[in-house]
Computed example of a mutant assay.
Amino acid sequence: MLQPSNMIKSVFLAATVLTMANSCQNADAADGYEVSGQLKNAPAGTVVRLSELVSNQFVEKGQAQTDASGSFTLKGSSATPGIFQLKVDDANQVLLMLDNKTKVQVSGDAKSLPVTYTVKGSKDAEVLRQLTQVMQGTKGEMESLGQRYNAAGQAGKAEEMKDIEKQFYVIQGRNNNKIKSLIRRNVTTVVGGFAVGAFLNPEEEFQFVDSVATVQRKANPNSPFTKELTARLEPMRATAAGATAPEINLPKPEGGTLALSSLRGKYVLLDFWASWCGPCRQENPNVVKAYNQFKNKGFTIYSVSLDQDKGKWEKAIAADGLTWHHVSDLAGWNSVGGAAYGVKSIPASYLIDPKGKIIAKNLRGEALAAKLAEVLK
């Protein structure tokens, strides 16, 4: 999980991209897609480009020039539904889902396309418009929070940062609930399969996303979005809430090894970190506070370091006052512990119950103490 400031930035980026998403399906259209439209503030000769997302980059498929009324038409073919970018310039572009039965009409202001565009041609287009409006509706508020968070961090105002984090999570939760409601109402559609992976974080919403993937495998088994979603979820399954925590048995700083399973009978926070990880070190005071509050109530911590230098690892443990269980194979990102949990970024954590089941992931700030207070009544 990213540091809150980076999380906020990532949500802003996602909101910026997803605000541009839209899709159309028209069963009566002739083979091959057609994208037509009329744009304000697009004088004759304005170039409109259409590109397809292939291997995480857009490959241009065609371009057209507007006429005196700002109108344009683009045609091509796509045997399976794909994500396309309709672009006037870097600041004015929208995303379309196209296949050979798609006939879509786009309109809007070429100078502010992401916030003014409308799409006609299918129910899917309207669903995606509503989804993007959810993100667009809080974009300004989230940007303001990000600016305030960074300013508070630079000024060393820890309490203000915590308050901003709370506001961020409230907005994020509200957005997620609206998005999930829209997806539920369109769960069997191709756009539903696309939207659940594009608008939600499968790590944080695994149970919901997995349930949608199950429906998609029956309703749209050949959809590239179904296949991509299934492949994306599979490595998460082993560490999803409710799963038995995969075993880790690594060396301790003082010698010997310690198995995660040896701590059964207590609530255990499995914490992935490293001495060189700034966000991890910034989060450590919160973890220390929670540990001191609950260590005598059936709670402990098993920290797995992604360090490679034993001296720096041990120095960080002492400097941050981390008086719990520590292990590491000193293999950095190649740690077998990290691999067992699919760790791609740190800090990352898993709260495990006394029976060895994962019950929560990536609890940060006051969220960790709140969850522990709930389960350790």
Rank of each mutant, 00 (worst) to 15 (best):
V35S: 05
E366N: 11
L229S: 04
G173T: 05
L18E: 07
Q154H: 14
V48D: 06
A238P: 04
I352T: 09
A259D: 05
N296C: 09
D307K: 08
A152L: 14
M161C: 09
G192M: 01
L18V: 02
M135R: 12
I171D: 04
S10F: 03
K180E: 13
A155V: 11
T226G: 03
T19F: 00
E247C: 05
S144H: 13
N362Y: 09
I359G: 11
I352R: 01
L128N: 15
K357L: 14
A158Q: 14
E374M: 11
K297P: 10
D320M: 09
M7G: 02
L363K: 00
S275K: 01
V336Q: 11
F272K: 00
M161E: 11
A44G: 14
T230H: 06
W273H: 06
S23C: 10
K297N: 13
K123T: 15
R232V: 04
P246A: 08
Q136L: 14
K218L: 07
T80Q: 15
L74C: 10
A241I: 14
M161R: 13
V134R: 01
A158T: 13
S223Y: 06
V196S: 00
L182M: 12
M1S: 03
T300V: 05
T323P: 07
Y267F: 14
S335F: 06
Q147E: 15
N249I: 00
G242Q: 13
D163W: 09
L306Q: 02
A319M: 10
A370R: 01
A243T: 01
Q105M: 14
V327S: 04
G76H: 08
I358F: 05
I171L: 13
A316G: 06
I183N: 00
A290N: 10
M161D: 07
V115I: 15
I358T: 08
T80P: 06
I346M: 03
L74Q: 05
D309F: 12
I359W: 08
R129V: 06
G37P: 12
D89M: 08
G137V: 07
K289T: 11
N22I: 00
F168C: 07
S69F: 15
L200W: 03
L260H: 07
G62T: 07
K310V: 02
E34A: 15
E247T: 01
A245C: 03
Q172A: 13
A231V: 03
T16L: 11
N176R: 10
L330M: 13
N186F: 00
N26C: 07
A274Y: 05
E143I: 00
K355C: 12
R49D: 14
T66A: 14
G197K: 03
G338Q: 04
G108R: 08
K139S: 13
G337P: 05
K40C: 11
E159Y: 10
K344F: 08
K266C: 00
E60P: 03
I248M: 11
V134F: 06
T102F: 08
